[in-house]
Amino acid sequence: MELISSILGLFKDRGAWFASLLLSHIALAFSAIILAGIIGLALGIVISEKQRFAPVIMGVCNVLYTIPSISLLGILIPFTGIGNKTAVIAMTIYGVMPMVRNTYAGLTGVDPDILEAAKGMGSTESQMLFRIKLPLAAGVILAGIRNMVVMIIAVTGIASFVGAGGLGVAIYRGITIYNPAMTAAGSILIALLAIISDFLLGKLEKYFRKRGS
């Protein structure tokens, strides 16, 4: 109970500080989400069209995904220094995996009868992709986006270990000055951000899945 009241006290006293951390958290996460989204989607499309590249690309993504986030940040420091840049790169690397996996699964999972009808009626390769496969894979791809977004929002929480901004700053400061309420306050905001994003993307996903059935 004491913790809760001191968390609420912190929000009241240092509301502006938390708000600015929240905003920079969103900005950081958003950059990584956009980058991972574009790169992951592109890679997913490439490996579903040219299937012989699939094992290599999926393999690399899987390996990168298993590196613990804290050590990935550490590995990157000698190359990209400390700060937001390193954090965004690390989170992008994490975010790519679920995007590639779901894009690939979505595109290769389209009913072969539908593809045959589309091809037999004279669709070009790009018409097949943009008019048939991508719209039909949209639900599965959105599930990947949702997965990625939640993960990136969470991982951004440790970005402050390499000197980046965001709510991780509050978590880290709370640890160093031994103020558990501050750490908890930062974590709660991260969790809320993740839950709200997940909820909104879930609605979108449902819409696309319904349409694609």
């Binding site: 009913d111 009868d113 539908i114 045959e116 009808a117 589309a118 719209p135 039909l136 349409r211």
Partner: peptide, 10 residues
């Protein structure tokens, strides 16, 4: 018109 119709569901 293919054997299993193949209408585009979306």
């Amino acid at each position: 018109s293919i054997q299993n119709v193949g209408l585009f569901p979306h």
